[in-house]
């Protein structure tokens, strides 16, 4: 076992180094960061408006309910009794919370959902060459004469890509915070980090893993790109579920504006759905990994 662990560590180290030197890891992370920045610039900041100002807080724990607004005319923040128009626009789940922050957080969720699709597409294409590259460089024959098991080989390839992605994405997530805050204002940091942890990272693991495993048997880089393209429907299929996971609670809550679902409940429901979707997608990917490993064993040495 210690030998396999040492081999895995070695593979992660040198596969990462090679990915860095051939710029594929850098391109992936830059692409993600630029995607985030472009989506951020194109997304409008839409304040929750009421007549004469931006609604910052609606408090219905007092009677009568009050609304805190920043007046467009003077910029002054003022609290006044909420009229029927305000109460109709601001459903129960948006009351008694910081509306500016909730608004920015929901914007962030929308944006990161779109970026997830971009990430899935890119990784399906970029990761497919991981194993065919060994054939391209003609080192696969040498590698198969070494005492490295098939599971260790596949595991090493996958883990190297995932560790690289994890490092790059953590960097992206941190560097993006000031950009997002500048554009949307303060947002719920915990929800933001959870979006990365529950949606983007698992999506990256899924897309890269699926692509690496599906292209494991092909002999050329060109064929691996074609495999990546062929996997697009699977990527889009999973993305549709991500969209449903993110927006179903939102839409449901908006339609049931007067139900008692809270903002926290909404966010938790959203994360629950995304987590479930990603878990299923990644389990399917791991199942493919088992199939690839099994087929490899059957074909080994024939």
């Amino acid at each position: 076992m210690s030998l396999q662990l040492a081999q895995l560590r070695g593979m992660i180290k040198y596969e990462l180094l090679m990915a860095w030197r051939r710029r594929s890891l850098l391109v992936t992370i830059l692409f993600l960061f630029v995607g985030l920045a472009v989506f951020t610039m194109t997304m409008q900041k839409e304040p929750l408006g009421a007549e004469g100002g931006e609604v910052l807080y609606v408090d219905d724990t007092v009677t009568p309910a009050t609304v805190t607004m920043r007046l467009y005319a003077t910029g002054e923040v003022t609290t006044m009794p909420a009229d029927d128009a305000v109460l109709t626009n601001i459903p129960n789940w948006l009351r008694n919370i910081d509306l500016q922050q909730a608004n920015a957080t929901l914007k962030m969720a929308t944006l990161l959902t779109l970026v997830t699709q971009l990430l899935i597409i890119m990784l399906l294409l970029m990761s497919a060459e991981t194993i065919p590259l060994d054939k391209h460089y003609r080192v696969n024959e040498l590698l198969h004469t070494l005492p490295v098991g098939r599971a260790t080989y596949l595991g090493g390839k996958l883990l190297a890509v995932w560790v690289g992605l994890l490092a790059g994405m953590v960097m992206c997530a941190l560097l993006y915070i000031p950009i997002a805050q500048g554009r949307f204002g303060a947002f719920d940091m915990s929800a933001y980090l959870r979006l990365w942890g529950v949606m983007l990272l698992p999506a990256a693991v899924f897309a890269s893993g699926l692509s690496i495993l599906a292209a494991a048997g092909v002999a050329t880089r060109r064929a691996s790109v074609l495999i990546g393209l062929a996997l697009m429907p699977a990527g889009i299929f999973v993305f549709v579920f991500v969209i449903l996971a993110v927006f179903t609670p939102l839409v449901g809550t908006a339609n049931a504006a007067y139900t008692s679902l809270s903002y926290d409940g909404l966010i938790n429901s959203m994360f629950g759905n995304i987590g479930q979707t990603m878990l299923i997608a990644n389990l399917a990917m791991l199942l493919l990994g088992l199939v690839v490993w099994g087929v490899g064993r059957l074909r080994e040495g024939q």
């Binding site: 070695g10 180290k13 040198y14 180094l17 030197r21 080192v139 005492p147 490295v148």
Partner: peptide
């Protein structure tokens, strides 16, 4: 075939680990 982006020390170290 060799990994073109590694140098000799790195390549031999990688192979030795494996």
């Amino acid at each position: 075939g060799l990994y073109p982006n590694l140098n000799a020390l790195e390549f031999l170290d990688y192979m030795a680990i494996l």
